[in-house]
């Protein structure tokens, strides 16, 4: 894979390579964070010194469908020993799908000094780099985050409704079967936790994984522009909303559009299909 700086990204600084991470394992200004879907991966072996941020346990409010609040984020940041100045490097499974989700949540609290290790956990492992089961001992830090700001990169249901009524740009990043509504019900099992299958009216379908190469790295800017600008006609200057099922896969696309292609206004609709597909009175398309 070509060097990250040569790929033409709008903000290449949001990505680091496995080489970069290997060279900063003992950098006190850097905290490496693993975020996965599979809860067994981190304890089975992780990058030396890396801490785990679990999307369910650490990032979500246990009693409301929402993310943690300022107090929760302060406590999380303290547990993983970061300050507002710490460079946090996220990596994880599934082409960094969950890592981008964690990064997005961190940015809700203004921790913008956050980057993704290109290629994620799989690339690190396939390069034969060290993985350890030893959990690092982290000195708790003191962290005072601002209140969570949901106004810039997060979209809520009513705002999405207004957005589509105004003809705004909308990207559905789920699989084609989910987009068409074909895979809502497998025999005996509701797959999506939604009563209807289909998509939000006006949405264009670009499965999130199209932005990734087979090795989990991100495609270069020209390849990404071919998908998002040429193929579905997104305008980087126009507000854009991305959604999936619960907002995790769409955080990957949010990262791509915002940081790799330089779109100015991208919001992740984390209510996504589990909210929209169940809501009374909201229109859908099949």
């Amino acid at each position: 894979m070509s060097d990250i700086k040569s790929r033409g990204y709008a903000n290449a600084d949001k990505l680091v390579s496995t080489d970069w991470v290997a060279a900063h394992l003992n950098d006190d200004n850097v905290r490496i964070i693993e975020s996965n879907e599979d809860p067994l991966l981190y304890p089975s072996g992780h990058i030396p010194g890396a801490v785990e941020v679990d999307w369910v346990k650490d990032l979500n409010d246990p009693l409301r469908r929402d993310y943690l609040d300022k107090a929760g984020f302060d406590a999380l940041a303290s547990r993983i020993g970061i300050s507002p100045e710490t460079t946090v490097i996220f990596y994880g499974d599934k082409s960094n799908w969950w890592a981008t989700y964690a990064l997005w949540v961190f940015e809700l609290f203004g921790h913008s000094n956050a980057k993704i290790m290109d290629g994620g956990r799989l690339k690190w492992a396939e390069e034969g780099r060290e993985l350890t089961r030893e959990k690092p001992t982290v000195a708790p830090s003191s962290y005072a985050a601002p209140e969570r700001d949901d106004s810039q990169i997060r979209a809520f249901r009513d705002a999405v409704l207004q957005h589509i009524q105004a003809g705004g740009q909308l990207v559905d990043v789920r699989s084609p079967g989910e987009f068409s509504g074909e895979t809502l019900h497998m025999p005996g099992y509701p797959q999506e936790g939604a009563v209807r299958g289909g998509h939000i009216p006006g949405a264009s379908s670009v499965p999130w994984s199209r932005a990734a190469n087979d090795d989990g790295t991100f495609k270069n800017a020209a390849e990404l522009r071919a998908i998002y600008l040429d193929e579905i006609g997104l305008n980087p200057e126009e507000p854009t909303v991305a959604y999936c099922r619960i907002g995790e896969r769409s955080s990957h696309t949010w990262f791509v559009l915002t940081n790799l292609l330089g779109f100015g206004d991208v919001r992740n609709y984390d209510g996504s299909w589990t909210e929209w597909g169940n809501s009374v009175g909201l229109p859908i398309e099949k």
């Binding site: 879907e37 679990d54 369910v56 099922r245 589990t274």
Partner: peptide, 13 residues
């Protein structure tokens, strides 16, 4: 219970 919907679904299937 703290597994993702997708993970829970895959293992159930």
């Amino acid at each position: 219970r703290d597994i993702s919907m997708g993970k829970g679904r895959g293992l159930t299937e």
